[in-house]
Design a protein around this nucleic acid. Structure first.
Length: 544
DNA sequence: TGTCATTGCGCC
DNA sequence: AAAGGGCGCAATGACA
Protein backbone atom coordinates (compact mmCIF):
# COMPACT_ATOMS: atom_id res chain seq x y z
CA UNK A 1 0.00 0.00 0.00
CA UNK A 2 1.36 3.39 -0.87
CA UNK A 3 1.53 5.87 1.98
CA UNK A 4 -0.18 8.44 -0.23
CA UNK A 5 -3.24 6.24 -0.25
CA UNK A 6 -3.89 6.91 3.38
CA UNK A 7 -3.51 10.66 3.20
CA UNK A 8 -6.79 11.62 1.66
CA UNK A 9 -10.07 12.03 3.44
CA UNK A 10 -10.31 13.92 6.67
CA UNK A 11 -6.69 13.38 7.61
CA UNK A 12 -4.66 15.15 4.98
CA UNK A 13 -1.30 16.71 5.48
CA UNK A 14 -0.21 19.51 7.73
CA UNK A 15 0.28 22.21 5.14
CA UNK A 16 -2.64 24.31 6.26
CA UNK A 17 -2.26 24.99 9.88
CA UNK A 18 -3.06 27.46 12.56
CA UNK A 19 -1.07 27.34 15.68
CA UNK A 20 -3.35 28.43 18.45
CA UNK A 21 -1.17 31.00 20.11
CA UNK A 22 0.05 34.49 19.30
CA UNK A 23 1.90 35.48 16.12
CA UNK A 24 1.52 36.31 12.51
CA UNK A 25 -1.37 34.44 10.86
CA UNK A 26 -1.68 32.79 14.22
CA UNK A 27 -4.33 33.33 16.76
CA UNK A 28 -3.85 34.81 20.15
CA UNK A 29 -5.18 32.37 22.65
CA UNK A 30 -5.38 33.09 26.33
CA UNK A 31 -3.66 30.83 28.75
CA UNK A 32 -6.27 28.42 29.97
CA UNK A 33 -6.75 27.35 33.51
CA UNK A 34 -5.39 28.87 36.68
CA UNK A 35 -5.13 32.57 37.34
CA UNK A 36 -3.64 33.37 33.96
CA UNK A 37 -6.98 33.48 32.17
CA UNK A 38 -7.58 37.11 31.27
CA UNK A 39 -10.76 38.44 32.73
CA UNK A 40 -13.37 40.23 30.66
CA UNK A 41 -13.33 38.82 27.15
CA UNK A 42 -13.33 35.06 27.26
CA UNK A 43 -15.28 34.83 24.01
CA UNK A 44 -12.88 36.90 21.95
CA UNK A 45 -10.45 34.25 20.78
CA UNK A 46 -13.17 31.62 20.51
CA UNK A 47 -14.98 33.84 18.03
CA UNK A 48 -11.80 34.17 15.99
CA UNK A 49 -11.38 30.41 15.91
CA UNK A 50 -14.99 30.04 14.82
CA UNK A 51 -14.52 32.46 11.92
CA UNK A 52 -11.32 30.89 10.65
CA UNK A 53 -12.77 27.43 11.00
CA UNK A 54 -15.74 28.40 8.84
CA UNK A 55 -13.66 30.30 6.31
CA UNK A 56 -10.66 28.03 5.91
CA UNK A 57 -11.09 24.83 7.91
CA UNK A 58 -7.44 24.61 8.93
CA UNK A 59 -5.76 21.99 11.02
CA UNK A 60 -5.38 23.56 14.43
CA UNK A 61 -2.16 22.92 16.26
CA UNK A 62 -2.09 23.15 19.98
CA UNK A 63 -0.17 21.85 22.94
CA UNK A 64 -3.00 19.93 24.52
CA UNK A 65 -6.51 19.38 23.26
CA UNK A 66 -8.23 19.29 26.62
CA UNK A 67 -6.75 22.61 27.68
CA UNK A 68 -7.65 24.43 24.51
CA UNK A 69 -10.69 22.67 23.09
CA UNK A 70 -12.80 22.31 26.21
CA UNK A 71 -13.09 26.11 26.59
CA UNK A 72 -13.88 26.38 22.87
CA UNK A 73 -16.70 23.88 23.28
CA UNK A 74 -18.00 25.92 26.18
CA UNK A 75 -18.23 28.82 23.73
CA UNK A 76 -20.06 26.63 21.24
CA UNK A 77 -17.09 26.37 18.86
CA UNK A 78 -16.20 23.07 17.18
CA UNK A 79 -13.35 22.37 14.84
CA UNK A 80 -12.85 19.64 12.25
CA UNK A 81 -9.14 18.88 12.60
CA UNK A 82 -6.28 19.33 14.98
CA UNK A 83 -2.73 18.24 15.70
CA UNK A 84 -2.20 17.55 19.39
CA UNK A 85 1.45 18.10 20.21
CA UNK A 86 1.46 16.11 23.44
CA UNK A 87 -0.24 13.04 21.97
CA UNK A 88 2.05 13.19 18.95
CA UNK A 89 5.09 13.55 21.14
CA UNK A 90 4.07 10.47 23.09
CA UNK A 91 3.70 8.44 19.89
CA UNK A 92 7.04 9.67 18.56
CA UNK A 93 8.93 9.11 21.80
CA UNK A 94 7.63 5.57 22.00
CA UNK A 95 8.59 4.92 18.39
CA UNK A 96 12.08 6.23 19.16
CA UNK A 97 12.43 3.87 22.10
CA UNK A 98 12.07 6.64 24.68
CA UNK A 99 8.82 5.43 26.15
CA UNK A 100 8.89 6.96 29.60
CA UNK A 101 10.07 10.48 28.80
CA UNK A 102 7.82 13.48 29.49
CA UNK A 103 5.60 14.13 26.49
CA UNK A 104 4.00 17.50 27.03
CA UNK A 105 4.60 20.20 24.44
CA UNK A 106 6.50 22.08 27.14
CA UNK A 107 8.80 19.11 27.72
CA UNK A 108 9.27 18.64 23.99
CA UNK A 109 10.25 22.27 23.65
CA UNK A 110 12.69 22.07 26.54
CA UNK A 111 14.36 19.03 24.97
CA UNK A 112 14.70 20.89 21.69
CA UNK A 113 16.33 23.84 23.39
CA UNK A 114 18.52 21.76 25.66
CA UNK A 115 16.78 23.16 28.72
CA UNK A 116 15.86 21.22 31.84
CA UNK A 117 12.89 19.03 30.93
CA UNK A 118 9.89 19.39 33.26
CA UNK A 119 8.54 16.10 34.49
CA UNK A 120 4.91 16.06 33.43
CA UNK A 121 4.28 12.35 33.89
CA UNK A 122 1.36 11.35 36.08
CA UNK A 123 3.78 9.92 38.64
CA UNK A 124 5.54 13.25 39.02
CA UNK A 125 4.71 15.36 42.07
CA UNK A 126 2.14 18.01 41.24
CA UNK A 127 3.22 21.56 40.65
CA UNK A 128 1.75 24.34 42.75
CA UNK A 129 1.40 26.80 39.91
CA UNK A 130 0.21 26.19 36.40
CA UNK A 131 3.11 27.07 34.11
CA UNK A 132 2.79 29.86 31.59
CA UNK A 133 1.51 28.48 28.30
CA UNK A 134 3.96 27.99 25.48
CA UNK A 135 4.26 30.92 23.11
CA UNK A 136 3.59 30.77 19.40
CA UNK A 137 7.18 30.31 18.37
CA UNK A 138 7.64 27.49 20.83
CA UNK A 139 4.56 25.68 19.58
CA UNK A 140 5.66 26.18 16.00
CA UNK A 141 9.15 24.92 16.84
CA UNK A 142 7.79 21.74 18.43
CA UNK A 143 5.49 21.19 15.46
CA UNK A 144 8.33 21.60 12.98
CA UNK A 145 10.48 19.20 14.95
CA UNK A 146 7.70 16.62 15.07
CA UNK A 147 7.11 16.91 11.33
CA UNK A 148 10.81 16.34 10.72
CA UNK A 149 10.86 13.30 12.96
CA UNK A 150 7.76 11.86 11.31
CA UNK A 151 9.20 12.40 7.83
CA UNK A 152 12.28 10.44 8.84
CA UNK A 153 10.29 7.37 9.85
CA UNK A 154 10.23 4.30 7.61
CA UNK A 155 6.45 4.62 7.12
CA UNK A 156 5.73 8.35 7.47
CA UNK A 157 2.37 8.10 5.72
CA UNK A 158 1.04 5.59 8.16
CA UNK A 159 2.35 7.51 11.12
CA UNK A 160 0.75 10.73 9.87
CA UNK A 161 -2.53 8.88 9.75
CA UNK A 162 -1.95 7.67 13.28
CA UNK A 163 -1.24 11.20 14.49
CA UNK A 164 -4.31 12.55 12.73
CA UNK A 165 -6.54 9.80 14.08
CA UNK A 166 -5.20 10.14 17.62
CA UNK A 167 -5.73 13.91 17.49
CA UNK A 168 -9.25 13.46 16.11
CA UNK A 169 -9.87 11.09 19.00
CA UNK A 170 -8.89 13.86 21.39
CA UNK A 171 -11.52 16.13 19.80
CA UNK A 172 -14.16 13.42 20.09
CA UNK A 173 -13.26 12.69 23.71
CA UNK A 174 -13.74 16.32 24.69
CA UNK A 175 -16.95 16.58 22.71
CA UNK A 176 -18.38 13.46 24.34
CA UNK A 177 -17.48 14.76 27.76
CA UNK A 178 -19.11 18.06 26.82
CA UNK A 179 -22.31 16.56 25.38
CA UNK A 180 -22.58 13.60 27.73
CA UNK A 181 -24.39 10.31 27.32
CA UNK A 182 -28.12 10.42 28.12
CA UNK A 183 -28.59 8.98 31.59
CA UNK A 184 -31.96 8.82 33.29
CA UNK A 185 -31.25 9.40 36.94
CA UNK A 186 -34.84 8.54 37.89
CA UNK A 187 -34.66 5.17 36.12
CA UNK A 188 -31.27 4.51 37.69
CA UNK A 189 -32.60 5.30 41.18
CA UNK A 190 -35.62 3.08 40.68
CA UNK A 191 -33.41 0.23 39.52
CA UNK A 192 -31.09 0.59 42.51
CA UNK A 193 -34.00 0.74 44.92
CA UNK A 194 -35.54 -2.30 43.32
CA UNK A 195 -32.34 -4.33 43.64
CA UNK A 196 -30.83 -2.93 46.83
CA UNK A 197 -33.62 -1.31 48.79
CA UNK A 198 -34.02 2.39 49.50
CA UNK A 199 -30.93 4.57 49.42
CA UNK A 200 -29.27 4.27 52.86
CA UNK A 201 -27.65 7.08 54.77
CA UNK A 202 -24.01 7.51 53.88
CA UNK A 203 -21.78 4.61 54.86
CA UNK A 204 -24.60 2.21 55.65
CA UNK A 205 -25.36 -0.99 53.78
CA UNK A 206 -28.54 -0.96 51.76
CA UNK A 207 -31.22 -3.20 53.27
CA UNK A 208 -30.98 -5.94 50.68
CA UNK A 209 -27.18 -6.16 51.09
CA UNK A 210 -27.53 -6.32 54.86
CA UNK A 211 -30.04 -9.15 54.59
CA UNK A 212 -27.70 -11.12 52.34
CA UNK A 213 -24.73 -10.43 54.64
CA UNK A 214 -26.81 -11.74 57.57
CA UNK A 215 -27.67 -14.86 55.59
CA UNK A 216 -23.99 -15.49 54.90
CA UNK A 217 -23.17 -15.11 58.59
CA UNK A 218 -26.07 -17.38 59.56
CA UNK A 219 -24.84 -20.04 57.16
CA UNK A 220 -21.49 -20.02 58.92
CA UNK A 221 -23.02 -19.69 62.37
CA UNK A 222 -20.81 -16.71 63.16
CA UNK A 223 -20.24 -13.12 62.04
CA UNK A 224 -18.35 -12.78 58.76
CA UNK A 225 -17.73 -9.67 56.70
CA UNK A 226 -18.56 -10.74 53.13
CA UNK A 227 -16.29 -7.97 51.83
CA UNK A 228 -13.27 -9.51 53.52
CA UNK A 229 -11.48 -12.21 51.56
CA UNK A 230 -9.52 -13.27 54.61
CA UNK A 231 -12.59 -13.68 56.79
CA UNK A 232 -14.38 -15.62 54.08
CA UNK A 233 -11.49 -18.01 53.48
CA UNK A 234 -11.21 -18.58 57.22
CA UNK A 235 -14.95 -19.14 57.60
CA UNK A 236 -15.02 -21.65 54.73
CA UNK A 237 -12.01 -23.40 56.22
CA UNK A 238 -13.86 -23.68 59.52
CA UNK A 239 -16.72 -25.29 57.61
CA UNK A 240 -14.34 -27.81 56.07
CA UNK A 241 -14.09 -26.15 52.66
CA UNK A 242 -10.61 -25.31 51.38
CA UNK A 243 -10.51 -22.28 49.09
CA UNK A 244 -7.61 -20.49 47.46
CA UNK A 245 -9.61 -17.49 46.37
CA UNK A 246 -13.17 -16.28 46.66
CA UNK A 247 -13.69 -15.66 42.98
CA UNK A 248 -17.16 -16.37 41.62
CA UNK A 249 -16.18 -19.30 39.49
CA UNK A 250 -14.44 -20.98 42.39
CA UNK A 251 -17.31 -20.35 44.79
CA UNK A 252 -19.77 -21.78 42.28
CA UNK A 253 -18.09 -25.17 42.46
CA UNK A 254 -18.60 -25.36 46.20
CA UNK A 255 -21.48 -26.97 48.04
CA UNK A 256 -22.16 -24.83 51.10
CA UNK A 257 -25.26 -22.87 52.16
CA UNK A 258 -23.26 -19.62 52.33
CA UNK A 259 -22.45 -19.69 48.63
CA UNK A 260 -25.82 -18.61 47.23
CA UNK A 261 -26.29 -15.51 49.43
CA UNK A 262 -22.59 -14.67 49.07
CA UNK A 263 -22.69 -14.66 45.28
CA UNK A 264 -25.81 -12.51 45.36
CA UNK A 265 -24.12 -10.21 47.84
CA UNK A 266 -21.00 -9.84 45.71
CA UNK A 267 -22.94 -8.96 42.58
CA UNK A 268 -25.13 -6.38 44.28
CA UNK A 269 -22.33 -4.96 46.42
CA UNK A 270 -20.37 -4.27 43.29
CA UNK A 271 -23.30 -2.49 41.68
CA UNK A 272 -23.74 -0.42 44.82
CA UNK A 273 -20.11 0.58 45.24
CA UNK A 274 -19.12 0.99 41.60
CA UNK A 275 -22.29 2.35 39.97
CA UNK A 276 -24.61 3.21 42.83
CA UNK A 277 -26.08 6.44 44.16
CA UNK A 278 -22.76 7.99 45.11
CA UNK A 279 -21.36 7.30 41.65
CA UNK A 280 -24.37 8.92 40.02
CA UNK A 281 -24.08 11.95 42.31
CA UNK A 282 -20.56 12.42 41.10
CA UNK A 283 -20.81 11.71 37.38
CA UNK A 284 -24.38 12.36 36.25
CA UNK A 285 -25.40 15.98 35.77
CA UNK A 286 -28.37 17.38 33.94
CA UNK A 287 -29.44 13.97 32.65
CA UNK A 288 -26.03 13.24 31.14
CA UNK A 289 -23.14 11.00 32.14
CA UNK A 290 -19.88 12.88 31.67
CA UNK A 291 -16.86 10.70 32.28
CA UNK A 292 -13.30 11.79 31.61
CA UNK A 293 -11.83 9.89 28.70
CA UNK A 294 -8.08 9.46 28.42
CA UNK A 295 -7.11 9.20 24.76
CA UNK A 296 -4.28 6.75 24.28
CA UNK A 297 -4.56 5.93 27.96
CA UNK A 298 -3.85 2.26 27.30
CA UNK A 299 -0.49 1.30 25.79
CA UNK A 300 -2.24 -0.47 22.94
CA UNK A 301 -3.93 2.79 21.97
CA UNK A 302 -7.29 2.03 23.46
CA UNK A 303 -8.87 4.77 25.47
CA UNK A 304 -9.05 4.68 29.23
CA UNK A 305 -11.13 6.72 31.62
CA UNK A 306 -10.03 8.55 34.69
CA UNK A 307 -13.10 8.60 36.83
CA UNK A 308 -16.61 7.75 35.88
CA UNK A 309 -15.78 4.20 34.93
CA UNK A 310 -17.54 4.75 31.61
CA UNK A 311 -15.81 1.80 29.97
CA UNK A 312 -17.03 -0.60 32.64
CA UNK A 313 -20.72 0.22 32.82
CA UNK A 314 -22.44 -3.04 33.77
CA UNK A 315 -24.95 -4.39 31.29
CA UNK A 316 -27.79 -4.26 33.81
CA UNK A 317 -27.53 -0.47 33.72
CA UNK A 318 -27.95 -0.17 29.97
CA UNK A 319 -31.68 0.40 30.34
CA UNK A 320 -30.85 3.61 32.16
CA UNK A 321 -29.38 5.02 28.95
CA UNK A 322 -32.46 6.40 27.20
CA UNK A 323 -32.75 8.77 24.27
CA UNK A 324 -34.43 12.13 24.81
CA UNK A 325 -38.06 12.49 23.68
CA UNK A 326 -38.20 12.42 19.92
CA UNK A 327 -34.58 11.27 19.70
CA UNK A 328 -32.95 7.86 19.25
CA UNK A 329 -29.67 6.21 20.05
CA UNK A 330 -27.82 4.69 17.14
CA UNK A 331 -25.65 1.95 18.61
CA UNK A 332 -23.09 0.27 16.40
CA UNK A 333 -20.35 -2.21 17.09
CA UNK A 334 -17.76 -3.81 14.88
CA UNK A 335 -18.28 -7.54 14.60
CA UNK A 336 -15.20 -9.69 15.27
CA UNK A 337 -12.92 -6.71 14.77
CA UNK A 338 -9.64 -8.23 15.91
CA UNK A 339 -9.52 -11.32 13.67
CA UNK A 340 -10.47 -9.11 10.73
CA UNK A 341 -7.66 -6.74 11.58
CA UNK A 342 -5.24 -9.66 11.70
CA UNK A 343 -6.46 -10.91 8.33
CA UNK A 344 -5.89 -7.51 6.75
CA UNK A 345 -2.49 -6.97 8.37
CA UNK A 346 -1.04 -10.38 7.68
CA UNK A 347 -2.04 -10.43 4.03
CA UNK A 348 -3.15 -14.02 4.45
CA UNK A 349 -5.29 -14.74 1.41
CA UNK A 350 -7.27 -17.57 2.95
CA UNK A 351 -8.01 -15.71 6.14
CA UNK A 352 -8.81 -12.53 4.24
CA UNK A 353 -11.31 -14.47 2.16
CA UNK A 354 -13.00 -15.77 5.32
CA UNK A 355 -12.94 -12.23 6.72
CA UNK A 356 -14.76 -11.07 3.62
CA UNK A 357 -17.90 -12.67 5.03
CA UNK A 358 -20.22 -11.37 7.70
CA UNK A 359 -19.77 -14.35 10.00
CA UNK A 360 -16.04 -14.77 10.00
CA UNK A 361 -16.00 -17.82 12.23
CA UNK A 362 -18.42 -19.83 10.08
CA UNK A 363 -16.36 -19.04 7.01
CA UNK A 364 -13.26 -19.98 8.95
CA UNK A 365 -14.81 -23.28 9.93
CA UNK A 366 -15.57 -24.18 6.32
CA UNK A 367 -12.04 -23.44 5.28
CA UNK A 368 -10.85 -25.17 8.42
CA UNK A 369 -12.86 -28.29 7.80
CA UNK A 370 -14.28 -28.28 11.30
CA UNK A 371 -16.82 -26.77 13.61
CA UNK A 372 -17.40 -23.07 14.09
CA UNK A 373 -16.51 -23.26 17.77
CA UNK A 374 -13.23 -24.94 17.02
CA UNK A 375 -12.34 -22.36 14.42
CA UNK A 376 -13.11 -19.64 16.92
CA UNK A 377 -10.91 -21.19 19.59
CA UNK A 378 -8.06 -21.57 17.11
CA UNK A 379 -8.37 -17.94 16.05
CA UNK A 380 -8.54 -16.56 19.58
CA UNK A 381 -5.69 -18.75 20.75
CA UNK A 382 -3.53 -17.53 17.90
CA UNK A 383 -4.24 -13.89 18.71
CA UNK A 384 -3.99 -14.15 22.46
CA UNK A 385 -1.53 -16.92 23.09
CA UNK A 386 -4.02 -19.30 24.60
CA UNK A 387 -2.87 -22.72 25.65
CA UNK A 388 -5.90 -24.20 27.35
CA UNK A 389 -7.87 -27.24 26.32
CA UNK A 390 -7.74 -28.09 22.64
CA UNK A 391 -5.80 -24.97 21.74
CA UNK A 392 -2.56 -26.56 20.63
CA UNK A 393 -4.25 -29.11 18.38
CA UNK A 394 -6.38 -26.39 16.79
CA UNK A 395 -3.42 -24.09 16.45
CA UNK A 396 -1.68 -26.73 14.37
CA UNK A 397 -4.61 -26.64 11.95
CA UNK A 398 -4.49 -22.86 11.98
CA UNK A 399 -0.82 -22.94 11.12
CA UNK A 400 -1.42 -25.23 8.17
CA UNK A 401 -4.47 -23.46 6.76
CA UNK A 402 -3.49 -19.83 7.39
CA UNK A 403 0.31 -19.81 7.47
CA UNK A 404 0.83 -16.08 6.98
CA UNK A 405 -1.63 -15.05 9.68
CA UNK A 406 -0.17 -17.62 12.02
CA UNK A 407 3.36 -16.45 11.32
CA UNK A 408 2.38 -12.81 11.83
CA UNK A 409 1.31 -13.29 15.45
CA UNK A 410 4.07 -15.81 16.11
CA UNK A 411 6.64 -13.22 15.06
CA UNK A 412 5.09 -10.67 17.42
CA UNK A 413 5.20 -13.18 20.26
CA UNK A 414 8.81 -14.09 19.53
CA UNK A 415 9.80 -10.42 19.56
CA UNK A 416 8.22 -10.02 22.95
CA UNK A 417 9.88 -13.09 24.38
CA UNK A 418 13.25 -11.81 23.21
CA UNK A 419 12.73 -8.41 24.79
CA UNK A 420 12.19 -6.55 21.53
CA UNK A 421 9.44 -4.01 20.90
CA UNK A 422 6.60 -4.45 18.41
CA UNK A 423 4.49 -1.95 16.50
CA UNK A 424 0.89 -1.70 15.42
CA UNK A 425 -0.01 -1.29 11.75
CA UNK A 426 0.23 2.52 11.88
CA UNK A 427 3.30 2.57 14.10
CA UNK A 428 2.22 2.73 17.71
CA UNK A 429 5.03 1.13 19.67
CA UNK A 430 4.86 -1.26 22.58
CA UNK A 431 6.78 -0.36 25.73
CA UNK A 432 10.26 -1.87 25.97
CA UNK A 433 10.78 -4.53 28.63
CA UNK A 434 11.13 -3.17 32.14
CA UNK A 435 14.30 -3.50 34.18
CA UNK A 436 12.40 -5.85 36.44
CA UNK A 437 11.53 -8.07 33.47
CA UNK A 438 15.15 -8.22 32.34
CA UNK A 439 16.20 -9.43 35.76
CA UNK A 440 13.34 -11.90 35.92
CA UNK A 441 13.92 -13.32 32.47
CA UNK A 442 17.47 -14.39 33.26
CA UNK A 443 16.40 -15.95 36.55
CA UNK A 444 14.76 -19.26 37.46
CA UNK A 445 11.29 -18.03 36.41
CA UNK A 446 12.72 -16.70 33.17
CA UNK A 447 10.75 -18.74 30.70
CA UNK A 448 7.53 -17.82 32.42
CA UNK A 449 8.36 -14.11 32.21
CA UNK A 450 9.32 -14.48 28.56
CA UNK A 451 6.08 -16.26 27.71
CA UNK A 452 4.03 -13.62 29.51
CA UNK A 453 5.63 -10.83 27.54
CA UNK A 454 5.22 -12.82 24.35
CA UNK A 455 1.49 -12.98 24.97
CA UNK A 456 1.46 -9.24 25.56
CA UNK A 457 3.25 -8.34 22.32
CA UNK A 458 1.25 -10.93 20.38
CA UNK A 459 -1.91 -9.23 21.57
CA UNK A 460 -0.49 -5.73 21.18
CA UNK A 461 -0.17 -5.83 17.39
CA UNK A 462 -3.77 -6.95 17.02
CA UNK A 463 -5.41 -4.89 19.76
CA UNK A 464 -3.36 -1.83 18.82
CA UNK A 465 -4.36 -2.01 15.17
CA UNK A 466 -7.98 -2.64 16.09
CA UNK A 467 -7.82 0.50 18.22
CA UNK A 468 -6.45 2.40 15.21
CA UNK A 469 -9.26 1.19 12.99
CA UNK A 470 -11.78 2.25 15.62
CA UNK A 471 -10.16 5.67 15.96
CA UNK A 472 -10.24 6.15 12.20
CA UNK A 473 -13.89 5.16 12.18
CA UNK A 474 -14.62 7.66 14.92
CA UNK A 475 -12.76 10.42 13.11
CA UNK A 476 -14.54 9.81 9.82
CA UNK A 477 -17.95 9.35 11.40
CA UNK A 478 -17.58 12.55 13.37
CA UNK A 479 -17.23 14.47 10.13
CA UNK A 480 -20.22 12.79 8.50
CA UNK A 481 -22.82 13.21 11.20
CA UNK A 482 -25.73 15.50 10.33
CA UNK A 483 -26.51 18.28 12.78
CA UNK A 484 -27.55 18.01 15.56
CA UNK A 485 -26.53 14.34 15.94
CA UNK A 486 -23.85 13.81 18.56
CA UNK A 487 -21.39 11.04 19.36
CA UNK A 488 -22.04 10.28 23.01
CA UNK A 489 -20.19 7.03 23.70
CA UNK A 490 -17.23 5.07 22.44
CA UNK A 491 -16.02 1.81 23.89
CA UNK A 492 -13.17 0.12 22.02
CA UNK A 493 -15.21 -1.21 19.09
CA UNK A 494 -18.60 0.30 19.74
CA UNK A 495 -20.03 3.77 19.14
CA UNK A 496 -23.26 5.47 20.14
CA UNK A 497 -24.84 8.47 18.46
CA UNK A 498 -27.73 10.45 19.94
CA UNK A 499 -29.84 12.01 17.22
CA UNK A 500 -33.35 13.17 16.37
CA UNK A 501 -35.43 10.14 15.40
CA UNK A 502 -35.89 11.32 11.82
CA UNK A 503 -32.12 11.35 11.30
CA UNK A 504 -31.51 7.81 12.54
CA UNK A 505 -31.43 6.25 9.08
CA UNK A 506 -28.99 8.86 7.91
CA UNK A 507 -26.78 8.22 10.93
CA UNK A 508 -26.83 4.47 10.36
CA UNK A 509 -25.76 5.06 6.76
CA UNK A 510 -22.97 7.33 8.00
CA UNK A 511 -21.72 4.60 10.31
CA UNK A 512 -21.61 2.09 7.46
CA UNK A 513 -19.76 4.53 5.20
CA UNK A 514 -17.35 5.47 7.97
CA UNK A 515 -16.46 1.81 8.53
CA UNK A 516 -15.68 1.38 4.84
CA UNK A 517 -13.63 4.57 4.81
CA UNK A 518 -11.69 3.59 7.93
CA UNK A 519 -10.88 0.26 6.29
CA UNK A 520 -9.68 1.99 3.14
CA UNK A 521 -7.58 4.48 5.08
CA UNK A 522 -5.78 1.78 7.05
CA UNK A 523 -5.50 -1.05 4.62
CA UNK A 524 -6.21 0.30 1.15
CA UNK A 525 -7.85 -2.22 -1.15
CA UNK A 526 -8.49 -5.40 0.82
CA UNK A 527 -11.04 -8.20 0.54
CA UNK A 528 -11.50 -8.02 4.30
CA UNK A 529 -14.84 -6.58 5.38
CA UNK A 530 -15.48 -4.81 8.65
CA UNK A 531 -19.22 -5.03 9.22
CA UNK A 532 -20.76 -2.63 11.70
CA UNK A 533 -24.05 -3.75 13.16
CA UNK A 534 -25.94 -0.49 13.69
CA UNK A 535 -29.39 -0.21 15.20
CA UNK A 536 -31.56 2.71 16.26
CA UNK A 537 -33.09 2.22 19.69
CA UNK A 538 -34.72 4.21 22.44
CA UNK A 539 -32.82 2.33 25.13
CA UNK A 540 -29.23 1.10 25.06
CA UNK A 541 -30.53 -2.14 26.57
CA UNK A 542 -32.39 -2.85 23.32
CA UNK A 543 -29.25 -2.66 21.20
CA UNK A 544 -28.22 -6.28 21.65
C1' DT B 1 -4.31 9.13 59.36
C1' DG B 2 -2.35 8.35 55.20
C1' DT B 3 -0.11 5.33 51.46
C1' DC B 4 0.44 1.14 49.04
C1' DA B 5 -0.36 -3.55 47.37
C1' DT B 6 -3.69 -7.09 46.79
C1' DT B 7 -8.04 -9.02 45.58
C1' DG B 8 -12.05 -9.21 42.91
C1' DC B 9 -14.94 -7.89 39.14
C1' DG B 10 -17.07 -4.77 35.62
C1' DC B 11 -16.25 -3.77 30.42
C1' DC B 12 -13.95 -4.75 25.52
C1' DA C 1 -19.50 -20.77 27.51
C1' DA C 2 -14.82 -19.86 28.10
C1' DA C 3 -10.21 -19.43 27.07
C1' DG C 4 -6.26 -14.07 26.03
C1' DG C 5 -4.72 -9.50 26.62
C1' DG C 6 -6.00 -4.63 28.17
C1' DC C 7 -7.92 -1.38 31.67
C1' DG C 8 -10.46 1.37 36.40
C1' DC C 9 -12.33 1.15 40.64
C1' DA C 10 -13.62 -0.10 45.56
C1' DA C 11 -12.62 -2.41 49.69
C1' DT C 12 -9.47 -4.59 52.72
C1' DG C 13 -5.38 -5.01 55.25
C1' DA C 14 -0.50 -4.16 56.15
C1' DC C 15 2.43 -0.76 57.42
C1' DA C 16 4.35 3.76 58.51
Amino acid sequence: MSPAAVLSGPFGTLDHVYVVVAGERLLPVPPVGGAARPAGRPGHWAAAVRELEAAEGPRWVWADTRETYAPLLEQGVRVARCHDLALTEGLLLAHEGRHGEPRSARAAHARLRGLPVPDDRPSAPGTLFAPEPLGAEAVAEVLADQLRRIAALPEPGRFRLLVAAESAGALVADEMAHDGMPWRRDVHDALLTDLLGPRPVHGMRPARLQTLADEVAAAFGRPVNPDSVQQLVKAFKGAGVALKTTRQWELKRIDHPAVTPLLAYKELARLHSAHGWAWADQWVRGGRLRPEYVVGGVVSGRWATSGGGALQIPKVLRRVVLADDGWLLVVADAAQLEPRVLAAMAGDVGLARAAGEIDLYSALARSFGGERDHAKIAMLSAMYGGTSGDASKLLAVMRRRFPKAYQFVEDAAKAGEEGRIVRSWLGRTSPPPSQRWKELVSGPEGSRAARDRGRFTRNFVVQGTAAEWALALLAVLRGRLPEPARLVFFQHDEVMVHCPAELADEVIAAVTEAAAEATRLLFGPTPVRFPMGAVAVESYADAK
